[in-house]
Every structure is written in structure tokens, then in C-alpha cells.
Nucleic acid binder design. Sequence first.
DNA 1: ACCTGAACACCGTTCAAGT
DNA 2: ACCTGAACACCGTTCAAGT
Lengths: 226, 226
Amino acid sequence: MVLHAAVALADAEGIQALTMRRLAADLGVEAMSLYYHLRGKDGLLDGLVEAVIEEIDAAVGRLRKDPINTEWRTLLRQRFLAARNVMLRHPWAPGLIGSRPTIPAGVYAYYDEIVSTLVDAGFSYRIAHRALHAFGSMALGFAQEIFRPVPAGGSTDVDVAEADLTAMGDALPHLVAMVATEAHDAADPTLGWCDSQVEFEFTLDLLLDGLDHFRESPPPSGSASR
Amino acid sequence: MVLHAAVALADAEGIQALTMRRLAADLGVEAMSLYYHLRGKDGLLDGLVEAVIEEIDAAVGRLRKDPINTEWRTLLRQRFLAARNVMLRHPWAPGLIGSRPTIPAGVYAYYDEIVSTLVDAGFSYRIAHRALHAFGSMALGFAQEIFRPVPAGGSTDVDVAEADLTAMGDALPHLVAMVATEAHDAADPTLGWCDSQVEFEFTLDLLLDGLDHFRESPPPSGSASR
DNA sequence: ACCTGAACACCGTTCAAGT
DNA sequence: ACCTGAACACCGTTCAAGT
């Protein structure tokens, strides 16, 4: 298994040691042979991301079997702790996922499950969407504008993410429904369905409100919540 | 100014286009000339990070002049929004800061100011520390274990961050005090002063508690906060 | 079906040499 | 003080050729 060897190499010596030539050497083969099995280095990196997602899914699957985890709160809590454990085993993973120019399908499926948990618990799609942003790096160890990626080299096609999602169709029912709802309700449709400024401020206020309870001296007047 | 040209190049064509040879070409010079002005490519990247931090500091300095911003909440809120604006101009910056093997001094100073704002508002150092983790990517656009970096290639020296901090001494009074307090109070000192598992769960519960208020259907029994 | 050698266009960097 | 050419050890990748 070439992917398994790649994960082992990245774990042992860091992602910068994962080189086509080095990976081939570990497999006792010439670098050019890898191109028969992989779609270049990008294919390799996409494979690594999928492998990590699968590892998290496996851990979450085990959690699901435990009857203790039926409540949305503990379900998400356990899920994120499981994801964190996997990331601690593969410290290169968050950075890799965050830097991939295209979002591997497994990541969408992962987020779809989170939205599913939230809406089943009584959250609206709008709040589920905000929760996704708020979780940020808690969910997969990296924080990025998932649904409107800035491709690091220009080309800010606003609709690309939406097109991607609807193309994926039935496999991601909750994400598709979420996007549909948000796009319909949007105050200014030209902004696209996801106004990341609003999401950012929502998360920020969530944290500031929560932290405020831990203050040990009285508020210096007029510190009402927003 | 070589740093200015580097920022312009990264802004225009992405960080992967920022190559010693390409940067030199933009400056009308040979690649080898850069080594006279820069400590290699690492020196260039460190310089980029410092430049971005300075840009944020400049924006925050302007905010400070506005008498509206005296309360900790609005002060931090405005600071993070300013940081976000800078990051939007330099989309490569969060990833770069997060991937740097060593943390540039300006980043420490930046966090020192945040801690200062928090303790002045009545937060304990312990909670200030947790707040720092909770803000995560809000503060600088990237999420990482700032104070115990995993250097992506092994070598997990637990005390390195603490040694760094104390060495920086008087320039970072609040950070130094925070580390001292936490190290003293630590239940298990062998863990180091920063138990990132605890920080992770604190942030997670902060978010889950905050989100719970937005649920639209009643809790399915027994959904007490933790 | 699977692997390979040679080659190409790139990297960052050193070093002795130029002005 | 500042710049340079040649060279080195690396990258990812193509392509025609082997078995």
C-alpha cells in the first residue's frame, strides 16, 4: 500500500520529507513507478487527506455504537475529540487539509454529518451553518473558509463551491439543503450564500459572550452583551 | 525594499510564486544577490510574517486613538476585525504564520497585548490563557498550538517555548507572568505549563454552550451544560 | 500490467570571483 | 559594499523504452 507508506513517512519525518523520490525509495522502487499508481504528487496528497478523514470516520463509527452518545452535544463533543486524537497522530494533517487547493470529497461528507447532527437536534440550517464556521479548527484541526475557498493564487469564483455542492447531489443531503436555505434567505444575493464577515463576527461574539462569564471583576459600566 | 516586493509578489500570484529566483527577477537582479540582504529563504519568510504583524499593529494603533475603544470587549473585537482585514489583503499570511517552524518575535508581542487587555479587564491569567486558545484563528487567522509548537518534523522539546518566553524577558511582561502563574498552579507539572487537551475542551464547551441558546426546539431531556 | 533511465525545467544554496 | 556565474544537490514530471 503506497498510501500507507506515505502516511508512515510523513508521521515519522514530517510532511516535507514526503517526496516522490523518497517515498519510492521506501517502497524499494524508482520514483517514476509511482506515476503508474498515483495521479502525480497532488493525487498522493489528496489520498493522504482522504486517508485521515477515513481514520476519523472509523473512530466516530465506534463512538456511534456506544448508546451513551445520543445527545447532539456529547455526539459532537466526542466527534471532535476523536478528530483531535487522529490529528495528534498525524500532525501534518491540519496544515495539509488547509492548504489543499481543492477540497477532497470526504471532507464534505464529514461536514454533512455534522450538519445532520445539528439539524436533528433542532438547529436551523442557518445556525448550523454558523456553527460550522464557529467550530472552525475544532472540527478538523484547521481553520479555513471551507465553503468559499480563496485558492491562494487569485481566481475568486464565488459560485464554485455552490456548484460543487449541488453536483455532489444526494450524497450530501444536509449540506445541499443548508446551501439552498441560505441562498434563498440571503439579504444580498450578490454576496453569495455565505457572507464570511457575518460568520466571523458571529463566532467572535459567541466567544466573547462566553468568556465574559469568567471575568472576576465587575464590568466597568455599559458592558451589555453587544 | 525587497520585503515590499516579496509581499507584492505573494499578493499578486500566491505564495508558491514567491521564489528566490522570481523575486530577484522582479527586482531586476540575480537570485544570488538576495543572499547578501537576506538570511536565505527562511529569513525572507520570517520577514514576511513580521511585515504582516506590523501591518496589523499599525491598524490597531489607529483604533487605540478612537476614544470609543476603551472597553475590553470592543477593543478585542476591533483588533480581531482589523487583523482579519489585513489577512484578507494577504491570504497567504495565515498559512505562512502557521507553518513557520519558529515563531517570529512580533507574534509574541501581539499576543502579549491581547493578554494585557484581558487582565486589565479583570480576567485571571489562567482564563486569559484559555481565551488565547479559544480565539485561535480569530486572532491571527490561523489556529495552532502557539505555545507548544509541534515542529512538523519531530523534536518535541516541551520546554522550548517556555525558555523562549523567559529569554524575551521584559518585552513581554504579561506573557511571562501568565506562563509563571500557570506553571505554578499546574496540577501535573510534568505536563508542562500548557495542557492543550484541557484548552481544547474548554474552547469546545464554550462554543457548545453558546450555540445551545440558538436551538429552536426543546432539549430532548438531560441536556444540562456538561 | 508494471517498472525504468534519461532528460527537462525547476528549486535553494555555496563559493569563489568580479566591480 | 554589493553583485554575479558556475556549480551542487535536490524537486516533480514526461516520455519512450523495457519486461
